[in-house]
Amino acid sequence: MNFLPEQVTFGEAKINSRLILGTGGAPSNQVIREIIEASGSEMVTVAIRRYHPQSSNSLYKILEQLKVNVLPNTAGCYNAREAILTAQLAREALQTNNLKLEVIADDKTLMPDPFELLDATEELANLGFKVFAYTNDDPVIAKRLEQCGAEVVMPLGSPIGTGLGIRNPHNIEMIVSNAKVPIVLDAGIGTASDATFAMELGCDAVLVASAITKAKQPLMMAQAIANAANAGHLARVAGRIPKRYWAQASSPNEGMINLDVKPASWE
């Protein structure tokens, strides 16, 4: 029997793979195609940028051919106003209400500005967007985003592009246990085990870009992280055993060989 993760709904998309692929940092659009095929990812993020005849068309065609769910983002936006206009352009270009909302505070941390993020989430939700809100690992902000209408809440494990993994697993666990919407771990994943850990903490998916696109072998890493995310999800559903302080043998004590005791009839 081969267990597979059950289908999950994120905004307007239904997907099975628990890896959402970020396309940022790939050496070429052709590599993006190969990464998507190698990982089996069914949802990929893209940025919205000024039109460029060659590169824009090539990426659009690849994603259309592969029939993946395209999740546009508002990367690079520093306030709600910019993010809302970018979101509206994205919806017009891609005909989807799904939107990864990023409103960052500064370019050193690339961490979200929670005030602008909450404002933008509320306004975009009112405009009919399915907001996937990229946020800090703060359980209070995560809850507020849900209350403002976010469809998916996406806390960071560590800052974008650092590959530092999940710096505050307890916060991620609290966000998950308190949430009524799907939680996707976004940012910070450096390798396969980080993805597994995120899923074991109860996240519904992981969003990974740099760890795959900047790996020495992006295709192999894409497959590794996709499998790792699925494995972590299955482990979460299957249920880990409680932790103990002292050892506990799994083999029975009964039936051990005994070299010292002679049969009673011999006495």
């Binding site: 970020g22 940092g25 940025a47 824009s56 990426l59 659009y60 990367a75």
Partner: peptide, 10 residues
């Protein structure tokens, strides 16, 4: 006029 399309991005 701002004319946009998609680009690589996380």
């Amino acid at each position: 006029i701002e004319l946009i399309s998609i680009a690589q991005g996380g």
